[in-house]
Design a protein around this nucleic acid. Structure first.
Lengths: 231, 231
DNA sequence: AATTAGATCTCGACT
DNA sequence: AGTCGAGGTCTAATT
């Protein structure tokens, strides 16, 4: 990895065109050839970047550019597409290089898969009288998150999202249409469960007779783990 | 901005929990207090990070941690939520600090808004015989990208995406249902236009009688640019 | 401030 | 290799 702090302007041409006026920025050159252009504020997204695989070629500036103070042009070319990033270096302020080696990678915990697992164990949070048939119940158009038997007859299909938006309701609607053609399952009711449900999604769901349920992840996890976690 | 290359392990607790085992990584400390943890590969997304506003406190390691070789613990605390990032420093390998100053920011060109503008001027690319009624035609459930009059009677609603996927077809379907109830507009045909249309989206669209059109952005921009036209 | 739709989305899983 | 769904999504525009 090579870190360069430089006064530069940047132009990108590819799926869109963009331009960064002259300013002092951090350039991160990773070992796989990729490059990031960061400013001193804003969050983790760079101002500009190039994804691997790509190649960096250092060019002489044109006469015009040299008159504007450009001392080098870095041409970063994507290998698969014709995306290109041109970095016009006016001054290199500081530099630091070091080989980091491979990274063992991130270990995650606590996303939708976990929520699904918890809800399958705590079906009363979706509705009373449910018994699990199975999670990820396969259909021709994809898996239904949770399918359950209702004690008063019929089946319930649950679509689970962390954040419930309109496309989740559309998805559940498609499943319900399909499942209701199966005489072994029909009638199939729908439940749309999420940690947060957007108003538009709720309106559409209820308009179609789908029940909306807001889930409290901490509460569900609390019942599950017994002990509070350190980290 | 402060750049630190360090052997460290990282723990995050917030909307999820995650852990990064001990390895050498780049730590970027921005002026607004935010921090990024990068490895030497992968694209622009950091392995871990904290968004501003947040505060960094340097703590002494616990006795246990010190035995594992931790010399410092950086506690990065989000100010608004209770997200927290703990960086256990084992060794600082290299360091570089520099004040970058404000960034003038990115200038973009060529995203969906521009594509919509171009298509409104070049409706023949969607179908023959169309006259623009208006862009962003408001309905109760949101704006239709382009509404046009057909010379042989009836109306055409165009949904425009950079990448055409299923939810775009669903969106257009909802608009068509609604618009077709308006006797002044009916019959309303749908056109799904995008720079790229996914096979599933195409299948669903055509199944519903919606025409799919793939747009060539460069070609459309070329006609628009002021260069002399052939016809 | 809250909400919504787009993103050079990125990233992982699965076919 | 392509597709699909989720994201600590992020981000900008609009209400």
């Amino acid at each position: 990895m090579r870190l360069v702090i430089a006064r530069c302007s940047v132009d990108y041409a590819g799926r869109l065109s963009s331009h960064l006026p002259l300013a002092t920025r951090l350039l991160v050159l990773k070992n796989d050839g990729s490059i990031l252009v960061h400013s001193d504020a804003g969050s983790y997204k760079p101002l500009n970047w190039m994804n691997p695989p790509c190649t960096i070629v250092i060019e002489e500036p044109t006469a015009d550019a040299a008159e504007f103070g450009v001392i080098e042009v870095w041409r970063v070319q994507q290998k698969k597409t014709d995306d290109v990033l041109l970095i016009s270096i006016h001054e290199i302020v500081a530099e630091l290089a070091h080989d980091l080696g491979d990274d063992p990678g991130l270990i995650k915990d606590g996303v939708e898969a976990h929520l699904q697992e918890l809800l399958a164990e705590q079906l009363h949070r979706a509705a009373e009288g449910l018994t699990l048939i199975r999670r990820e119940y396969m259909t021709a158009i994809g898996p239904v998150d949770i399918l359950a038997q209702h004690s008063e007859g019929g089946t319930v299909a649950i679509e689970l999202k962390r954040r419930g938006e309109i496309d989740g309701v559309e998805q559940l609607t498609r499943y319900l249409e399909l499942l209701n053609r199966d005489p072994l399952l029909a009638p199939v009711r729908g439940i749309f469960a999420a940690q947060e449900i957007k108003p538009q999604a709720r309106t559409l769901a209820e308009d179609r007779g789908i029940t909306c349920v807001v889930l409290d992840y901490d509460e569900m996890r609390g019942l599950d783990s017994g002990a509070p976690r350190l980290f």
